[in-house]
Design a protein around this nucleic acid. Sequence first.
RNA 1: UUGGAUGGCCUG
Length: 264
Amino acid sequence: EISWNLMIAGCVRHGHSEEALRLLSEMQGMNMKEDKFIFASVLSACSALAALEQGRQVHARIITSGINWDVFLGSSLLDMYAKCGRMDDAVEVFESMPERDDYMWTALITGYVNCGSIEDAYRIFGRIPEQNVVSWNAMISGHVKNGQDEEALTLYCKMQRAGIRADKVTLASVISACVGIKALEQGKQIHAHISKTNCVFDIVVGSALTDMYAKCGSTEHACQLFDEMPERDRISWNTMITVYASCGRISDARRVFDEMQEKN
RNA sequence: UUGGAUGGCCUG
């Protein structure tokens, strides 16, 4: 029944993972048969909640349902184990899949990164037949998550030398690396590079740059960037309020805060 | 028009 699929997928997309799992139980209580779309969605919900036990139950149900594995199901399952910190199970899923794709490789990398095993992440990265921008991003942000900002920036250089074009995910990560080591000059260079090659006005990249300028001591650049941004979201507002608040410009912080209230 | 991986602030 297609509307169950739509409801469950909708819940997961909007971050209502618990509701998605509740709908699954309801469906199962009515003896309705799940399909591979449902399974992939609810596995994604389990990943978001790091709900290992429910993920395992879904895994068992997939097997008993006799559904054929595909790369969507396989990577969803792998990602569930990885997000639950069960890298042994994640690897077992990976090894048992008849077909592998980029999503599975990246899920493994991220799993190791989140366990703090950057060496294992690199080992996986090196085994990928053809690294794409997402696998590079996973390694770069992996360094940042582990407090290795210099290494993140070094890897970003290597990525460029390998001829992989940075996307907004790459840029947000390397800008964040600049913040960690207060590398204003390097941050400015990245900003200049973005102006030539990418869209400076992506809200995430823009907020990352705003934060970078402020934390590297250039409040005026931060304000200017924020004013130039064509859109705002919760995080960009919060970034700007924090910029002012942390340098003692309380009335400016208040002004931005009020502006935020008006526009929402 | 149904499913999967990597990104920014604050809490830290």
